[in-house]
C-alpha cells in the first residue's frame, strides 16, 4: 500500500471509532440534539421558559411537529443528494484519469 492509502485507511478507521465509541461507552445516554441542549440553556439563563416567537414554516403548515420518520426521510434526502453529486464527481474524475492515459 502506498503512504496515501495507509493514511486514508487509518483516518477512516479513526472516524468510525470516534463516531461509534460514545454509543457504546455511554450506555443509556439519550443522544438528543445539542440544539435542544442549547434551548434548555436559554431557559436556565433566563430563569423562565422561553416561547419561540416564530415556529418553523413546515410545522405551521402541517399544524404540529414533523413526524420522526418523515424527518429522517428529509435527512436521508439531503445526504443522498450530496453523496450522489460527490460520487458522480469522483466517478467522472477517476475514469477521466484512467482513460486519458498519461497525457496531462
Amino acid at each position: 500500500m502506498s503512504k496515501n492509502q495507509k493514511i486514508a485507511v487509518a483516518s477512516l478507521l479513526a472516524v468510525l471509532l470516534i463516531a461509534l465509541v460514545p454509543l457504546f461507552a455511554l450506555k443509556g445516554a439519550e443522544f438528543g440534539g445539542s440544539d435542544d441542549a442549547g434551548s434548555q440553556m436559554v431557559e436556565t439563563i433566563r430563569g423562565e421558559s422561553y416561547e419561540p416567537w416564530f415556529t418553523p414554516v413546515l410545522e405551521q403548515l402541517i399544524g404540529g411537529e414533523l413526524p420522526g420518520e418523515v424527518e429522517s426521510l428529509f435527512f436521508c434526502l439531503q445526504t443522498g443528494l450530496g453523496v450522489g453529486v460527490i460520487a458522480f464527481g469522483f466517478g467522472y474524475l477517476v475514469a477521466r484519469k484512467k482513460y486519458s492515459g498519461k497525457a496531462k
Binding site: 461507552a25 455511554l26 445516554a29 440534539g33 445539542s34 435542544d36 435527512f75 439531503q78 450530496g82
Partner: peptide
C-alpha cells in the same frame, strides 16, 4: 450537504 446531515453521537451523550 452530506456532512451537515450526519448527526453523530458524541462523548457528552448528545
Amino acid at each position: 450537504f452530506v456532512i451537515s446531515s450526519l448527526k453523530i453521537p458524541s462523548v457528552t451523550g448528545s
